[in-house]
Design a binder for these strands. Structure first.
Lengths: 204, 204
DNA sequence: TGTACATCAGTGAACGCGCGTTCACTGATGTAC
DNA sequence: TGTACATCAGTGAACGCGCGTTCACTGATGTAC
């Protein structure tokens, strides 16, 4: 049998996780361009050569951070869904709210998630179950998909709308990104377009 | 009277424009991270110290490239509008098509346009007339704005949808970005959501 | 329980790289007279 | 028309910077016996 090695047994404890956390903090504080192996190492309190034992270059580190960020992104949406109403319409609204919230609180991490090459992370995720980030969206859209229709159409409509709004918001198109606690007065009216997807929910 | 100085009278001719063009080519060929003063200078055939006479650092160069890219972006949408149908619905469809086309053909330039800090470029543009990029969108949306409604709602709905779809498309979320000559089979059905904005056009 | 050894995470010095910037300069252009 | 001068775009060498990477090493941990 292959034994699971105890990764916490050596000097640092769990340097790999510490470097990922350091990387996320650097992203939040200083933006995408500041994410380097040397800075992550310094923040984690190790020498600059140490990360080479854990990641395949800066690309490997970015990938690992994207994976962790992706998981936090998913969790933010799940929390938002749980905290909101339970109707199909409320589910979609809440998830979009969580989507925007995550991006506003972690703009550089959000950008990193969506900039890791040809979306290997997403392809993996889209094939995964309902607990995946894309699965959360799929579940929320399902009640609105007309019988026999391709669910990807409505899923992509919802995803495009919230993704575009979020990007424009982060880019400052609607004014400073910290405008209101409600993020921006345009959010609710813009999202109201989704009241029109697929007519009424397919089931009560 | 203030005379307009002839900028073409010195050694190079118009190094400033040449550097901007070189920068756009570098963006297209090698991506955002490859855009440096030294590479632009090399591509334009001048020494690496020459750009300092024309731009305030790499930020100044990026800004100038964004401005030029923004203008090409606008022109692509105008051409798409002219080439398509003349109904209000066709105008919106054509503009969105041009939006996606530009991004697919110039992904790094598209990214640069939307990543230049707090969108000074856009703020300027949004205040400009109907010939501006935002003006093109505003004009196209106008027939769908119900009397008394805030036009920014519909404008932001359309903009968010096409912007999000474009970003997801470029990120490879729907598969390789060169999938079909028609870009992707999801484009038309996803954009059909816009048939629902503001009910019917306000005027015939 | 104790000893010898293998493993390997982390160290710290050194390397070459491309970057932006500085600076004295060159030499073509434009202008004053 | 011709001469002297001012301007300034572009040159090329030099600088310091942070980066990723290499490499011999150290020393704690885990294991074989």
């Amino acid at each position: 049998m292959v034994e699971v090695k105890d990764k916490k047994s050596h000097h640092h404890g769990d340097l790999r996780a510490a470097l990922i956390q350091s990387g996320i903090e650097i992203l939040t504080e200083s933006g995408l361009d500041s994410l380097t192996l040397r800075r992550c190492a310094a923040r984690a309190g190790v020498s600059h050569a140490a990360p080479a034992h854990h990641f395949d270059g800066v690309a490997g580190l970015r990938g690992a951070i994207a994976k962790e960020g992706f998981d936090r992104f998913r969790q933010t949406m799940l929390k938002a869904r749980a905290a909101g109403g339970q109707s199909p319409e409320a589910h979609i609204r809440s998830i979009c709210r969580g989507y925007l919230d995550f991006a506003v609180e972690n703009p550089a991490l959000f950008a990193l998630i969506f900039s890791c090459g040809p979306m290997a992370q997403f392809e993996e995720d889209m094939k995964a179950g309902d607990a995946s980030a894309y699965g959360v969206l799929r579940q929320a859209c399902a009640p609105f998909v007309p019988p026999g229709a391709d669910p990807r159409i409505i899923e992509t409509q919802v995803w495009s709308l919230i993704h575009g709004f979020t990007h424009l918001f982060l880019a400052g198109t609607f004014g400073p990104a910290n405008a209101t606690p409600d993020h921006h007065a345009l959010f609710a009216p813009v999202m109201s377009l989704l009241q029109k997807i697929g007519g009424e929910p397919a089931t009560g």
